[in-house]
């Protein structure tokens, strides 16, 4: 007996749930050869706004969790991804071997960042020598809600922009240009103890979503890595200045290279505490 095909509906991932776009719109995702692959939800500005509220709501809990706990959860995300390697390799497409290698690299990247959760403060913070009887300590603190424009390709890029933002305690709203793997990654996040709202995934068009997020006064950081239109990026950077968002400019990165600390430290703020000696 032939089975009816059960196709997956690609929706958004906001606040731990998978809603359709508030606008009811969708768009067609085509393969590199132009064939129909799937319909994806086309997020609207209101979806972006809702995602920011969800991220803001999740921030207190996530930034307040111990770094050790955040590391454990990120490691758990890697575990869940590991179990679904075949599915991701298929959704990424392209050469089979290359796709499989990319998923492996993505898992390794998550584990790499998971390890940093309780070490970044030691490396990026400091005990400062001061001219007085004080302990003077600088510690990094998360900025808040970060809007991330993920690179459309490869999948490793998506993981490499999300992981460094959340490992330090930020929450994020991610504009994903390649919807299928991104939303399936949302399923991984939803099943890996990550509190709802810490990562929110929007699929849709950059020119529709980026300006609203860049101008949003409740967004504290903006990662423009995946923006492909230079004018859009410029305008976004200017809008971001209104409330002094921390910004990563669009860059062409070699995602296979060792990431370094830059992506983590860009969305950290430094708190310095003076404490009198001998009390």
């Amino acid at each position: 007996m032939t089975r009816l095909s059960v196709r997956k509906t690609y929706k958004l991932y906001i606040g731990g749930a998978f809603p359709r776009s508030e606008s009811g719109r969708s768009y067609v995702v085509a393969s590199s050869k132009g064939e129909f692959v799937a319909n994806a939800a086309r997020a609207s500005r209101k979806d972006a706004r809702d995602a920011v509220s969800a991220a803001r709501k999740a921030f207190a809990g996530w930034s307040g969790a111990t770094p050790y706990n955040r590391g454990q959860i990120l490691y758990r995300v890697a575990e869940m991804l590991e179990g679904r390697r075949a599915q991701f390799a298929e959704e990424i497409g392209g050469g089979k071997k290359a796709a499989a290698e990319q998923v492996d690299a993505a898992v390794d990247r998550l584990v790499w960042y998971a390890g940093w959760s309780d070490k970044i403060a030691s490396v990026h913070g400091s005990a400062n020598p001061v001219a007085g009887p004080y302990f003077n300590l600088s510690t990094p603190e998360p900025s808040g809600v970060v809007a991330v424009v993920a690179p459309s390709d490869p999948f490793l890029g998506l993981i490499s922009v999300i992981a460094p933002v959340i490992v330090t305690g930020n929450t994020c709203v991610v504009v994903c240009s390649s919807p299928m793997a991104a939303i399936t990654f949302g399923e991984v996040l939803a099943t890996s103890d990550l509190p709802g709202g810490v990562v929110n995934l929007l699929t849709g068009f950059q020119k529709e979503l980026v300006p609203g997020l860049a101008a949003h006064m409740d967004v504290n950081g903006l990662d423009l890595t995946g923006v492909d239109d230079p004018e859009l990026a410029l305008k976004a950077e200017q809008d971001a200045a209104e409330n002094l968002k921390r910004v990563i400019r669009p860059v062409a990165e070699d995602w296979t290279a060792e990431p370094g600390l830059e992506r983590m430290t860009r969305f950290l703020e430094t708190k310095t505490v003076w404490h009198p000696v001998g009390i």
Binding site: R49, G212, A215, H216, M217, D218
Partner: peptide, 9 residues
């Protein structure tokens, strides 16, 4: 203003 505000404001 055309900008979404946050509860901080």
């Amino acid at each position: 203003t055309g900008r979404y505000a946050g509860p901080d404001y």
